[in-house]
Design a protein around this nucleic acid. Structure first.
Lengths: 234, 234
DNA sequence: TAATTAATGTGTCGAAAGTACATATTTCTT
DNA sequence: AAGAAATATGTACTTTCGACACATTAATTA
């Protein structure tokens, strides 16, 4: 093993095997949701004394026999019951004392899902959706991880068709625009937004209308099949 | 520790401490260099039987008492003697069998340096510069890591002032353009390139000219101080 | 020293994309 | 039938992008 890892002999003598295997690897999932015109993130109450009263992202140690990607899917599945969700790796965080109980480096993933259409079994556990705007402090370095993930999402959102997992299958252009505004934190001009989206050619016009509104309904769209991002089942 | 990592009691019983600490963490550095109008990468001959005759990136295990960033600086320092080099994290690679001798996940960093101005002590070791165009196969998953890092560099290069570490302190616009062409793998129009660079306002006109050319010399520039990317010494 | 060579330095025009902005239309409600 | 509340849509202006050509400079050579 030591030779495999290209250590020099002198180093091998100095450093024991156990030293090197004293780092644990975890995955943390930044699960963004969208509901009530607000971007939210799924958090769990931290059960560490050090972080009494604080919330943290959903994470777990990576098992020796699973890929990083597989680990993130497993965590999502275990915690939310969902298995059709797109995950994207964001960054690795490895400061020495980021975890109070030991050396743990973590790989952050973000994920997007439509809160209303993915009813979690929230009843018996400590899992809750939190509005991004209200989150001031999180356990560990999870606030930093959240900020980095949001920035990464913001950078991708206008270039790539990533956000559709946050919406129901059928949505109006107004709903889509409100979602973009939530993610980017800015207001957008309706006509310019529609123009910009329409040149991307991501949407399928369903020839259906919104219903149950007390005003003129809008047309409904869905994202074209080739742009749907689902889990690559492993 | 187990509680710290938020395992359920049932899991703690099933899974021993050692199982979880059976994953090693390494850092691999994709060190790009530029010389002779070509983009190159620094590789070392693999000393694994499995990869006989193949080259690999510069990497090492992360020590329990160092940050990921610190580890990447240490590796660069140890292998090249350089300590004023900018490193940027790219991605974590964690496929189960990416390392033949055990479970090792690796965090990839890229780094940029001017080959001519950073004379490595290349004499006694197996370190060599390889033209990117000639690299077909590398040890481990290092070809994939290299490709991902290059793509990441390509995406950043027009937006951010990242490439100046690949050039000597003083350079002409032609040299800069040739560098961009090497990185992007395309030819650029001289006038449009100059226009694009000039609006960025990254460059300091040094009021000096190239010398020792057999034709009209160009003006020399350097990157403005506020855009220089050096190591944040830790 | 004049002519040649090989590169530098520079500007314009048309196309495409981005931005600001207002009115007519549709559906539901009363 | 009128009013309320939202949808759907186009144009003019500005900025950016891309293609493209010619005069200038310094070194070399005849």
């Amino acid at each position: 093993m030591s030779k495999a890892l290209q250590l020099k002999t002198a180093e091998i003598e100095k450093i024991s095997h156990l030293d090197y295997f004293n780092i644990a690897v975890s995955v943390d999932c930044v699960i963004f949701g969208y509901d009530d015109k607000e971007l939210k993130v799924l958090l769990i109450k931290s059960d560490l004394e050090e972080f009494e009263g604080l919330y943290s992202l959903l994470g777990d140690l990576v098992r020796p026999d699973e890929d990083l990607d597989t680990a993130s899917y497993r965590i999502l599945k275990e915690r939310t019951g969902l298995d059709d969700v797109y995950l994207e790796q964001v960054h690795a965080f490895g400061e020495i004392s980021r975890h109070p109980s030991g050396r743990v480096i973590t790989i952050a993933y973000y994920s997007l899902l439509d809160i209303k259409n993915h009813k979690l079994k929230l009843s018996n556990n400590e899992l809750h959706w939190h509005s991004l705007s209200e989150i001031k402090k999180l356990a560990f370095d999870h606030k930093k991880i959240l900020d980095t993930s949001l920035r990464s999402l913001q950078e991708q959102v206008m270039e790539q068709p990533v956000v559709f997992n946050l919406l129901p299958e059928k949505f109006s252009l107004r709903e889509l625009q409100e979602l973009y505004e939530s993610i980017l934190g800015i207001e957008l001009d309706r006509r310019n937004f529609r123009k910009k989206i329409s040149v991307k050619d991501w949407l399928q016009d369903l020839n259906e209308m919104e219903t149950n509104l007390s005003h003129r309904p809008g047309k409904l769209y869905s994202v074209k099949k080739q742009y749907q991002r689902k889990m690559q089942h492993s």
